[in-house]
Design a protein around this nucleic acid. Structure first.
Lengths: 254, 254
DNA sequence: GTGCTCCGTTCGACAATGCTAAACGCTATC
DNA sequence: GATAGCGTTTAGCATTGTCGAACGGAGCAC
């Protein structure tokens, strides 16, 4: 396979570094973190700044992510076919289930949330579009890993963090869970990612029957579970929504 | 001044092209649009795809914006200091005014919305974070142009489109409006951008008294105007919010 | 079914660019 | 006042990015 362009790879690494923990980084920190000469790092930053991908704080001279990323990220959402097709169905699912709805796709080592409908009540909620979720513990992640070989490989290679006492991290047990997900057509997260929170998700297919994403709901276990299991009517609603979106994407019903 | 890195400039141009009208573009279209050889464009796209900034549709071979842009764009928002400081105040403003609240910063030739609080009612609303607004007709834009010389230069250089019959496009008249904005500390958009919609915005300053953004409210003229003018209590509320955010950013009150 | 056009992709030669050591001016610290 | 380390700039050079040519494949017209 042909090589990639080195300066583009370095620029991408720089943007990811700036997206890490620290809000702003100095040029020397960036250079040393990436093993580059200061002049090299400076040339890349100067170009990224000119294009709006990076901004420099005039006072301290440090660099941070730039506004052009927000603009392009928003455009990514605007033209995202799966999301566009799912918009109506996910509003309906939030209304009928009374819970928060999420739409996720595989991105790098996890699930990227591309749509989020707030739980239809008056509580204060935070929009999670753009957030990443793990593959091994979340309902969305298990669905993607069960239906998409690339996602499966990412899950296998990843470090599986035990977020709660109920998080499954053993690969054998996870594989059995994925087999069950394939058989029953949905996955469940019963306090594996957050204590007190449960979720259910189902896969969305395109016209070639390839999995392209997953839709799910999330809520407090007191509301979404009964006798320690996800409420069947919620599972049915999520699967109905997934089928509807799949049909809109051209997938033939079996 | 030193030159920027050509391949990074080309990559940025490619991403902006993909963010334009068409959802997906073919390699040959991209190459000819940017005046590049196909092999050159292909090398850049291959690298952008590897880094997640671009995705290729397996069926048609065409290219579109990638998910990494959403992730980085969201991180830009998460670490944006102005937005972080403004979050609480803008929620209060939406409640007290009963209207939608926007927070904008200068980006390229316009106003980039970095925060948007929905009007506190049950109507269906679309999140506009990431959207661009023009400088010449919007309240946010006029505030930025009145307080930030860079924004002012962008407004002067830009093509001033008449969105409604009330849009002011003559530079002399706009300069008088900006003088008024500086004098009174706020700007108004009375059906200049959208018919039936009015807005008011005020500037936000940092600790060096530099304008770093603007906050405003937008609503139907029937609600936000009285006798053809913006309601004074709404103007006062917006200006109070702008002062509060400015103080949080370290600006001393005069 | 055949021929044609144009697609995205690959390869290798080469010239232009990106890389970087060194030096600079500036600021903060001691 | 001296020092350290910051971001920035310059010039030389080696490596990389560019691109012409060719390829296999898909779609379309006849």
């Amino acid at each position: 396979m042909a090589k990639n362009i080195q300066s583009l790879e370095r620029a991408a690494a720089m943007l990811r570094l700036l997206a890490g923990g620290e809000r702003r980084l100095g040029l020397s920190d960036i250079a040393s973190s990436l093993g580059l000469a200061k002049a090299t790092a400076h040339g890349i930053l100067r170009t990224l700044q000119h294009e709006g991908f990076v901004e420099q704080d005039p006072g301290s001279g440090r660099y941070q992510l730039g506004a052009e990323l927000l603009r392009l990220g928003t455009t990514y959402l605007d033209v995202h076919e799966l999301r566009a097709r799912a918009l109506v169905w996910t509003d309906d699912l939030a209304r009928s289930s009374g819970e928060a709805v999420y739409l996720g796709v595989l991105h790098q080592h996890g699930v990227l949330i591309v749509h989020h409908v707030f739980r239809p009540d008056d509580s204060r909620q935070v929009l999670e579009v753009g957030a990443m979720q793990p593959l091994h513990s979340t309902a969305l992640g298990k669905v993607l890993a069960a239906t998409d070989p690339v996602a499966h490989a990412e899950l296998v290679d990843a470090k599986r963090e035990p977020f709660t006492a109920r998080t499954v991290t053993e690969l054998d047990e996870i594989e059995r869970t994925l087999d069950l997900t394939r058989a029953q057509g949905y996955a469940v997260d019963n306090e594996e990612t957050l204590e007190g929170v449960a979720a259910v998700a189902a896969p969305i297919y395109d016209r070639r029957r390839l999995a392209v994403g997953a839709v799910g709901i999330t809520g407090a276990v007191e509301r979404v579970c009964r006798d320690g299991e996800l409420r069947p009517e919620l599972i049915a609603a999520v699967r109905d929504t997934a089928r509807s979106v799949s049909r809109d994407l051209g997938a033939k019903p079996f």
